[in-house]
Design a protein around this nucleic acid. Structure first.
Lengths: 363, 363
DNA sequence: CCACAAATCCAAAGCGCTTTAAATTGTATG
DNA sequence: CATACAATTTAAAGCGCTTTGGATTTGTGG
C-alpha cells in the first residue's frame, strides 16, 4: 500500500503523527483546520472566509500539496480525462493523419487542463470496451473516430447518456453529437473544377468505402458528374485499399491503363498523392501537365501541398483544427450533460495550385 | 455524486436495499458472501475455496460486474496505466514516426491489459508535469522519448525510484533504464557503404542535434569518415531543422550548390528522403544514378523504402517494434520495482537497394 | 472425542478525497 | 441582553475497493 522507505522530496511531511504522506489530512493538520474547510478553500467554495482561503492556498503551494486524483475521482465521479479506444490491429496511428488529429486534441486538453486515457483494444472486444469505458468512471467522455456507415460503437453509446462526440457521421436511430467536415461538398467541388477545365474521364482513388467519409466523398464525386451530365463510370473509381503510397501508386498505375485514359485523378490523401505522382511519372506522363491531380489535404506539417512539384491542388481541411474543436465540443457536453447535441459540419476549402493549372486536352 | 435517474443496463442491480449501483457490495449481497471473500475470489487469492470462486466468477460475469478502477487504484496504489507526457507545442505527433511508436506501445499494452494516460503539457511546465505525474498515483510508470543530450526529465526522475524507461539515451548521473537503437553504428555503416562505393563527398542531412539520436548519427558518420581517412567537412552536414519534406528539399537543394558537389546524401528519415529526391531531380540529376541516397527508415507502413523510385537504401529499424519492447521493459520494471535497470541497444540493419546501386563516379 | 492445524470466511479499517448536516462563531436587531 | 440570522467551521458519512486480524468451520491424528 504505502511505502514509507521512499522519501522523495515533496511527497512526505512531518506532522503530529510522525512523517506521513502529504495529503489533505496532513495539510489540514498542519493548518489547524478541518479537512472540509481546506478542501473547500482549495476548490473555491464560497462558504470559506477569504482570509483562511489565502492561508490554505499559500500552505498548499509551499508544501506542494496535490490532491490525489484517484481519491478525487472516487469521491466526485469526475476524472478530467477523456477516453479514446484504439484498435490495435488496423491501427489508427497507421494513418498518419491520426497523429495530427491527436495533436489538436492535446492542444485543447492542455487548455482545459484535462488528460486523455487511451485504451488499446483488439477489434474483437471493441464494443464491449466502449461500454465498459463508459461505465468505468475512468473518463468523463469519449471521442470516437473513423465511423463506418452504421457504426455499432455509436449506436451502443447513443442509447446511454454518456457524453461522447463522433468525428464523422453515421446512421444512428438515436441523436448524438458529431463534428465532421463536408466531405461530399469538398469532392463535389474538386470534381466540378476538373469538369470545368474540360476533363471528362475523372478517376477517383478513394479510401475504404465502408467508412462514411469515403462514401460521402464518392457521393460528392457522383453528384458533380451528374450535374454536368457526365455519365458515371464505376471503372474509374477505386474504392478500397489503405491510404499508403504504395496503394496510390498501384491504383493509379492500373487506372492509367484504361482507354480512353483518365485525364484527371482525385485522391483521398497526400500520401496517396505521392504514389499517384510516382505512377503518373512512371507512366511517362507529367502531373499537372498531362494529367491533373487533386488530393485531399489534412494539413500534415511534414508534407505540404504547396511544396509538391508541381504544387498540388487540394481540398483542404486541417484535421488538427478538427481535433481541437471536437475536444471543445466534448468538454462542453461533459459540463452540461444532457443539454442537447452538437452537430457540426466544417466547410472544406478547394485550393487551386499547379497540379490542375496547365491542362492539355487529351488526344 | 450518483445519478439514479440514469438506468443504463448493466449499471444497476436490484438488491435488498432497492436498486443500487452494481458494485462489490451489491454483488456480495447477491451472493450472500462478504465483500472480502468476493474480492479475493475475483483476484485469485488462495484463501477461498474453489467452489465459491466458481460461484463468484459466474455471478460476476452474469451481472456484468466490473470493479471500479478508481476505487481499486485508491486502495492498491496501482492503476495498470502507464503515462506519457506530450509537449503540445513542438508536438511529438508532428513527427509521423511517433504514431508508429505509439502503435507498438498500444500492442504491448493490450497484451498486458493495461492502458495509457497521455498528459498534454506546455514545454514550460514539462518538468513539473513529470514529477507530478510520478507522485500523482495516476500511472504506474512513465515512458519518455526524444531525449536531449542531458535530459532534465530523466535527471529528475532518475533520482526518485519511480519506474520509467527512456526511448533513447542521455547523460545522467544516476542509473536509469533505456531502450535505444544503435544510431551511431547505423550511420557509420551507411557512410562506410558510400565510402566503399567510392564516394568522397558525402552529405548528411540530420535531425536537430540537441537530440541524442541526431548527435549519435553524426558521430557515426564522422567515425566512418575517419576510418577511411576522409577529412570531415562541416559544410556537408546539415544539423538542424525538422523532419519535413520541405526541409529535406531545402537542405539538399542548398548542399547541391556546393563545389565540388556532394555525390551522396544520408538523410535522417523517409520524409526527408522525399524532399531530397525532389531536390535532386529538381536539380536535373537522377537519384541512384547521379547521386546516391540513403535514408533512415523507421518502417512507416504508408511510406515504404522499397516502393520508392529508385528503391531506397536504408538504415532500417522498426520503431513500432521499439515501442513494443520498451513497453515490455517498463511493465517488467513496474512489477519488480528496484530490481536494477534494463539497458538495451537494438542493432540497425543496413538494407541496400537501388538508390545506392548504380553509381557513376563524379567528374 | 478432543486438540490442533488448515481451510474458509467475515467485520472493519483504511486508501484520500468530497459533501451533507450540524455546530460554532460573529453580528445586528428588537 | 436575549434573539435571530448569517457567516464560518467541523464531524462524520460516503465513494468502492483491498487487506488486516480475527472468527468460524472443517479436517486429521492421537
Amino acid at each position: 500500500m504505502q511505502d514509507f522507505l521512499r522519501l522523495e522530496s515533496d511527497k512526505y511531511i512531518e506532522t503530529t503523527d510522525g512523517i506521513t504522506p502529504m495529503n489533505l489530512k496532513a495539510l489540514s493538520q498542519h493548518l489547524g483546520l478541518s479537512q472540509t474547510t481546506v478542501s473547500r478553500a482549495l476548490n473555491g467554495y464560497p462558504e470559506v472566509s477569504e482570509r483562511t482561503r489565502e492561508r490554505v492556498m499559500q500552505a498548499a503551494i509551499e508544501l506542494n500539496y496535490r490532491p490525489n486524483p484517484n481519491a478525487k475521482s472516487l469521491a466526485t465521479g469526475r476524472t478530467e480525462h477523456i477516453g479514446i479506444i484504439l484498435p490495435i490491429e488496423q491501427n489508427l496511428f497507421m494513418e498518419p493523419v491520426f497523429g495530427e488529429f491527436m495533436a489538436g486534441i492535446a492542444q485543447c486538453l492542455a487548455e482545459a487542463d484535462m488528460d486523455m486515457t487511451i485504451m488499446p483494444t483488439p477489434r474483437s472486444n471493441e464494443l464491449q470496451a466502449y461500454q465498459q469505458l463508459a461505465i468505468s468512471g475512468r473518463v468523463d467522455g469519449i471521442l470516437i473516430s473513423s465511423p463506418t456507415l452504421q457504426d455499432a460503437r455509436v449506436a451502443c453509446l447513443a442509447e446511454s447518456d454518456f457524453p461522447f462526440v463522433l468525428h464523422g457521421r453515421t446512421e444512428c436511430a438515436f441523436p448524438y453529437s458529431y463534428l465532421d467536415i463536408d466531405n461530399q461538398g469538398a469532392f463535389a467541388n474538386a470534381t466540378r473544377l476538373l469538369l470545368d477545365l474540360g476533363h471528362q474521364r475523372i478517376s477517383l482513388v478513394n479510401g475504404d468505402e465502408s467508412m462514411t467519409f469515403a462514401r460521402d466523398r464518392h457521393a460528392g464525386y457522383r453528384q458533380a458528374l451528374q450535374e454536368h451530365g457526365v455519365t458515371y463510370d464505376p471503372q474509374l473509381v477505386c474504392s478500397q485499399g489503405s491510404m499508403t503510397e504504395e496503394h496510390g501508386f498501384n491504383s493509379v498505375s492500373r487506372l492509367l491503363l484504361q482507354r480512353p485514359r483518365p485525364s484527371a485523378f482525385i485522391v483521398g490523401s497526400m500520401i496517396l498523392a505521392l504514389g499517384a505522382m510516382r505512377a503518373i511519372r512512371h507512366h511517362g506522363l507529367e502531373p499537372g501537365h498531362d494529367i491533373a491531380l487533386i488530393a485531399h489535404d489534412d494539413h500534415l506539417p511534414y508534407l505540404q501541398a504547396d511544396k509538391f512539384d508541381p504544387p498540388l491542388t487540394t481540398t483542404s481541411s486541417s484535421i488538427r483544427a478538427a481535433g481541437y474543436e471536437i475536444t471543445q465540443v466534448l468538454h462542453a457536453e461533459i459540463n452540461n450533460k444532457g443539454m442537447g447535441h452538437s452537430q457540426t459540419v466544417l466547410p472544406v476549402e478547394l485550393i487551386v495550385r499547379g497540379s490542375t493549372r496547365t491542362y492539355k486536352r487529351p488526344a
